[in-house]
Design a protein around this nucleic acid. Structure first.
Length: 653
RNA sequence: GCCGAAGUAGCUCAGCGGUAGAGCAACGCUUUCGUAAAGCGUAGGCCGUGGGUUCGAUUCCCACCUUCGGCUCCA
């Protein structure tokens, strides 16, 4: 006799087991028409047609794009429609696994022939056919034996079934899209929407490879990505957002704006052009300044270090495959993939007292890592990069305050780049299965990091098991102007590397004894290459004035104003600004167009009128005409905007 | 590294067994112009690299390199 509690607190009593649909109907026929599933006790999503036998809290899930539960149901069901369509078009296709994911769903399968984008229109047409037929999703349950028998010839489904049974399920469920025995079926735990007709706003997005169980040594499968929304309008918005991401692509903008290039013969290494390097240097200068403010000392350590040092640090053993190595006079060397050993070697010079701690050692460390060729990605994932790296050597007792300090510094830095607190996500990555150190010390260090984040006024979520083998870490993700997340900053607690068995970094404590330091590895921007790539996409190449490679372009109307234009350029350049004059014989319209496309922040038109008034007619990148400015006012305006690090309206919140 | 797709002028792209095409950019000349493209002309190519098939390959086949989309990885 189930007693159902609704979200508003109302209680419905039923004399016998009911289905979600019956509950929805009891609430109202309108709701029943819109219902696609129910959620029990805030955890289990269930088909509308399945019986509910015991008391529970129940939410009716309707087809809405702002409800993650609804999207889960729609996308999980759309994955079935996709799989059915592919099976119909490519008989002999083996199905593996088709879950909903962020932004859509995928289905891993093994078709007899490769599937490519050219097949999408046919797949989508078939899917629309299945949707138009509006066939019900019917759940069929079998005993373990019967269910296993149904998956007998299918390696992947058999494996899924066995895993479900291992997990403790007593029955195996299949979902038929239509009539059992007649229509397509798939082993699946569910849940699903009532019928295929709900899945109108679906689209096949991409095809890629994937491994069975994510294991490189296992079968290679074809992964077909799709997405589905409740409303076709939301699908359009989603597709529009993808277009937007394409427009912001840092590789495209980097080329258009002459920031950098990548050389085919030298994969994974960036050639920075004058304009790109200008931004890069501004980033470094800025961080150098911030680090000084926060009590860091800057150092520089060798790019190539001997194998013996990497053996002592443990890197040779663990990361040998990903290190570039070289040899001289029969000794092995490696190009540094990290800066920490070098920083510890600096720390170890001379005797350190507890009074010297914490010691914050920073370096714009140029590192090389031999990343797998397939992992390279524009300037976001490269083999040669520079980090705003630093290592804080301190005592256990100092960890928490150092982390608080770091979080505050990081928040201030991110805000200057257009990522205010609400655009920062924090994760605490805790102890992994494979780890060193006892549980008591893990308890202590995880708590220290968590407390520090809270003390800095930030919220975090847990990322269980994702910590480094030597200690927990905090990971900071930035959400850009179109909502994409990029992990940048991190701080990791490490007592392994400075420990006795590794590089043995010690200090003399108050009581005269020698103690080992603990170390915090930390970056804020991370790889400058990557961070700059993210900034390009975040700003769509329209950098704030303080970062912009070309802040002002003077546009003379005719050659008669060239001299005046050059005078203005020299004057602003003397104040440290990045200014050019467009000396081409083009007409003004062409010069304006060019300047806007190049994303120059300000363009100052000078004609006869301006020469006479010693002024400029100003326009900004957005195309707003700002009127006439005499030179003093013009210069003051620019300097103030640079000084404030003012952000463009597109990201200011 | 693995799976799929792609690589043609500086850029964006067309062509696809028979002498390599456009627009923009560049360069030259004319124009000196008031807020998103002045006009005319010139030059520009180992059609990613290597092999094969063919009378003939940018085009078809194979291998490799690089890039892109994923997977795996990311100290």
């Amino acid at each position: 006799m189930p007693r159902i509690t609704l979200p508003d607190g109302k209680v419905l009593d039923f004399p016998a087991p009911v289905t979600g649909l019956m509950v929805a109907t009891a609430i109202g026929p309108g709701l029943a028409r819109k219902a696609i599933g129910v959620k029990l006790d805030g955890t289990e999503i269930r088909d509308l047609a399945r019986p509910i036998e015991s008391d529970c809290a129940l939410k009716v899930i309707t087809a809405r794009d702002d409800d993650p539960d609804a999207l889960f149901l729609l996308r999980h069901s759309a994955a079935h429609v996709l799989a059915e369509a592919i099976c119909a078009l490519h008989p002999g296709t083996r199905l593996a696994y088709g879950p909903p994911v962020e932004d859509g769903f995928f289905y891993d399968l093994k078709p007899p022939q490769p599937i490519s984008e050219a097949d999408f229109p046919a797949i989508e047409a078939k899917m629309q056919e299945i949707v138009a037929a509006n066939r019900p999703f019917v759940r069929c349950e079998y005993t373990a034996a019967d269910g296993l028998a149904r998956t007998q010839d299918d390696k992947y489904k058999r494996d899924n079934a066995e895993r479900a049974l291992q997990k403790g399920d007593s029955k195996l469920s299949f979902y038929v899209s239509g009539q059992p025995g007649k229509d397509w079926e798939d082993l699946c735990a569910g849940p699903h929407v009532p019928s295929t007709g709900w899945l109108k706003a679906s689209k096949v997005m991409a095809v890629a490879g994937a491994y069975w169980h994510g294991d490189q040594a296992s079968d290679q499968l074809t992964r077909v990505y799709g997405t589905c929304f409740a409303d076709e309008k939301t699908l359009k918005v989603h597709l529009h957002r993808l277009e937007e991401a394409k427009r912001r692509n840092h590789r495209k903008l980097g080329k258009e704006m002459h920031l950098f290039h990548l050389e085919e013969d030298n994969p994974g290494q960036v050639f920075w052009h004058p304009r790109g390097w200008s931004i890069y240097v501004t980033l470094m200068d800025y961080m150098r300044h911030k680090q000084r403010e926060h009590g860091y000392v800057e150092v520089h350590t060798p790019s190539v270090m001997a194998r013996s040092l990497w053996e002592r640090s443990g890197h040779w053993e663990k990361y040998r495959e990903n290190m570039f190595t070289t040899e001289s006079e029969k000794r092995d060397f490696a190009i540094k993939p990290m800066n920490c050993p070098g920083h510890l070697l600096i720390f170890k010079q001379g005797l350190k007292s507890y009074r010297d701690l914490p010691m914050r050692i920073a370096e714009f460390g140029s590192c090389c890592r031999n990343e797998a060729s397939g992992a390279l990605h524009g300037i976001l994932r490269v083999r040669g990069f520079v980090q705003d790296d630093a290592h804080i050597l301190c005592t256990d007792a100092q960890v928490e305050s150092e982390v608080v300090n770091f979080c505050r510094m990081l928040t201030a830095v991110y805000a200057d780049f257009g990522f205010p607190a609400e655009r920062i996500g924090v994760k605490l990555a805790t102890r992994p299965d494979k780890r060193i150190g006892d549980d008591a010390s893990w308890d202590k260090s995880e708590k220290a990091l968590g407390d520090a984040v809270a003390a800095a006024g930030m919220r975090y979520t847990l990322s269980p098991g994702e910590g480094a083998f030597y200690g927990p870490k905090l990971e900071f993700t930035l959400f850009d102007a179109i909502g994409r997340g990029w992990q940048c900053g991190t701080i990791q607690l490490d007592s392994n590397l400075p420990g006795k068995d590794r590089l043995d970094a010690t200090y003399v404590a108050e009581d005269g004894s020698r103690k080992n330091c603990v170390m915090l590895h930390r970056v804020i921007l991370g790889s400058l290459e990557r961070f700059l790539g993210i900034l390009i996409e975040h700003f769509e190449g329209k950098f704030p004035l303080w970062l912009a490679p070309e802040q002002v372009r003077i546009l003379p109307i005719s050659d008669a104003q060239l001299g005046f234009a050059r005078t203005i350029r020299d004057r602003l350049a003397a104040r440290g600004m990045r200014v050019t004059v467009d000396e081409k014989a083009d007409m003004l319209g062409a010069k304006v167009r060019e300047a806007r496309l190049q994303r120059v922040n300000y363009f100052a038109v000078v004609g006869q009128k301006e020469v006479e008034a010693s002024a400029v007619a100003l326009q900004n990148q957005a195309g707003e005409k700002l009127g006439s400015f005499v030179l003093d006012a013009f210069e003051a305006r620019l300097l103030q905007e640079i000084d404030e690090k003012r952000l463009p309206a597109s990201v200011a919140s």
